[in-house]
Amino acid sequence: MIEAKGLIKDYGRNRAVKGVSFKVDKGDIVGLLGPNGSGKTTIMRMLTGFFAPTSGACSIAGVDVQTDPREARRHIGYLPERVALYPDMTVRHYLKFVARVHGVGRGIASRVDETMELTGLTEMAKRHIGKLSKGYRQRVGIAQAVVHSPDVLILDEPTVGLDPRQIVEIRALIKELAGRTTVLLSTHILPEVSITCRRVLIIDQGRLVAEDTAQGLTQRTVGHGELLLRLVGPEERVLSLLTAVDGVTGAEVADRDPSGASVYHVTTAADRDVRASIAKLVVDQGWSLQELTQNTMSLEDLFVRILEESAGVTF
């Protein structure tokens, strides 16, 4: 449904996107993951035809965005990074306007009602957009992107600036939509993609550095082998028994609590989850367990790791 071939974008002398190619299949949810300034927004603006690529091409539903922008845009619902809203319009007026501009003719009123229902905006229908909270504005932005029932949804940072409850709601909404449409969304938050997306494209400094399934990404970040353990028990014995657990490669005391508990850093073989074995050990020995946490990797750590992998060297 979405195809990018060798996309390059120069801003003056600065090359923001350096030859990115990818495909998104029909019905898939794909996340563009990368730090701020990595070129995600620029890629999305080229896909929607707002910016022309310096070279390369992209197509939406088989239609080339450069040669036939109007036909290509007919298939797209787009949530820009800065949600494009008219503060003086009411929610209903605004959604009607967007639907009309996208060519929704008959049944426009019921289509707008359905969209407001789907995005939880029904009670806000007559409110002026300028008076809505950030969370509701974001919803109006998403409603605006889906009101004409597009085949392809392009969402630039759909959950940015929302409170945790709203984030959960918006993610659920996106998942709900994904059954019907193809979704490409961008984010700089690592857990976001693993929760929402099926496939992940990782962008760094304008390059596509890795492509993975959401599961693969979760394994990469979770199974990297570091545990944090907090318990009360004889340190010497704890350390010796910990290192004897199958899969554990090392253990050390990292800190001591005033309460008498010690904090251990346990390293394990990659792709091994030893939490259950350690928990069992602690219970069998009668120590008092206070905390057992698998350290998840930060986005920055993951990037370093991916870059290492692609370069084939270890720093």
Partner: peptide, 14 residues
Amino acid sequence: SLGTIELLYTAPVR
């Protein structure tokens, strides 16, 4: 300044 220009120029209009 509102950013709505992006809405107009990504809509299927000339």
